[in-house]
Amino acid sequence: MSKKKHRDRPSPETLGLAPVGVDTHAHLDMRGFEPAEIPDILARARAAGVARIGNVFLGPDAYARNAALFDDAPQVFFILGMHPTECSGYAEPLTAAMEAAFRANPRLRAVGEIGLDFYWDDAPPEDQKRALREQLEMARGLDLPVVIHSRSAEEETLAILADMGFSGRPLVWHCFGGDAELARRILAMGFFISVPGPVTYAKNTALAAAVAEIPLSRLLLETDAPFLTAEPWRGKRNEPALLGFTAVRVADIKGLSPHEVWRATADNAVSFFELEVL
């Protein structure tokens, strides 16, 4: 019987990145992570140069249940919104609960991830659209940035954002996986684009071509942990410590040094989410 070939997976610490990186989108409170693991996950992130992490709570119930997991982790900032697949029967009390949370806790820095997802059929499209509009209006009233999720619904998402006058407002297109044409349309509306681990996959040539065109000044980096792990750790659970491998690939695509991409995307995140300068 032949043995499986051992795969060499370099430690992210070997990348030697400065301790300034920002993982703008992770789900450390989701199933897949145990609460007792969080201190070790954060320690690994620090050792790999990740100074801040945006934890995304998928709705007010998740926030109320899990925010305390990060009481001893001031480097973690919060993002809160109703994911489109959870918006079946969306009702106004959800918006009210989230607005109250935002007003009570300054660690909540953005509304998200909100948007449209027509890939799954977990929530009717009209419910998703209503929820997106209500949450966009909440973000406008609170003067907060928006984190957009859009899957198999790019045309409808862009149309709603244009209709509601969101061009030029602080908004990031989370987990971008589109082509250069979609990137150009997002950039033309004044938005940011967040690049996840799949940019490291060899077959994602369209995504690589898009990243080549996105100005460094409009780029953010994310893990979307525990999902979408970058090479060379693909197939393993994702976590913020692995963000640097995405930065290295982006740097290669753009002909820059990883350190330049690492620092620039961190500066972008600090400005976008209005984080304290370390």
Rank of each mutant, 00 (worst) to 15 (best):
A264V: 11
K129Q: 15
G81W: 06
A212L: 02
A45G: 07
M82H: 10
P215G: 00
L219M: 14
V277Q: 15
A64W: 04
D122A: 11
I148S: 08
V195G: 04
A162R: 15
G244T: 09
L221R: 08
K254L: 11
R46I: 07
L219E: 09
V111M: 05
A251L: 08
L108E: 08
P84W: 12
F227G: 09
R185S: 09
P125A: 13
I193R: 09
D267K: 09
V261F: 03
K5Y: 10
T265I: 01
N204G: 01
N204H: 12
A183H: 13
I186S: 13
L108K: 12
E113D: 01
G16N: 14
L182F: 15
D179E: 14
A230N: 06
D61F: 03
I160M: 13
L158Y: 05
R263Y: 00
E154I: 03
R52Q: 14
A48R: 04
L28W: 11
P10N: 06
A212S: 11
R234P: 13
E213Y: 00
Q75S: 14
P84N: 12
D8N: 13
I148F: 03
P74D: 06
I214T: 06
A241C: 11
G16I: 06
N105Y: 05
L182Q: 10
F57W: 01
F166Q: 05
T95L: 07
P84H: 12
A251H: 13
F102L: 07
